[in-house]
């Protein structure tokens, strides 16, 4: 299950980065870029919170 969350998080992070590059290179429109990045944000937190947000000992 942890691997699943990892994959979701990495896909989310990729969708945070790549759309802006695609927009910069005029491959997609600005509205699409904003949408993909919003989706990427949701995916990142959906995956990263269960994957990385483990309880640790406070200093």
């Amino acid at each position: 299950m942890k691997n699943f969350y990892k994959i979701v998080a990495v896909v989310g992070l990729t969708m945070t980065l790549v759309p802006s590059l695609l927009f910069y290179f005029d491959v997609i429109e600005i509205g699409q870029m904003k949408l993909y990045m919003a989706v990427g944000t949701v995916l990142w937190f959906s995956g990263a919170i269960p994957w990385l947000g483990q309880k640790r000992t406070q200093n």
Binding site: T16, P19, S20, L21, F23, Y24, A48, L52, G53
Partner: peptide, 28 residues
């Protein structure tokens, strides 16, 4: 507080990327 501190660690890599990608997005 503890849960929020853990959330902050999760948010950090994404936040950095947002800075960079947002800057790329406004260059045109």
């Amino acid at each position: 507080f503890d849960a929020l501190a853990r959330f902050a660690k999760v948010a950090a890599p994404w936040m950095f990327l947002i800075f960079v990608t947002a800057a790329i997005a406004v260059l045109p």
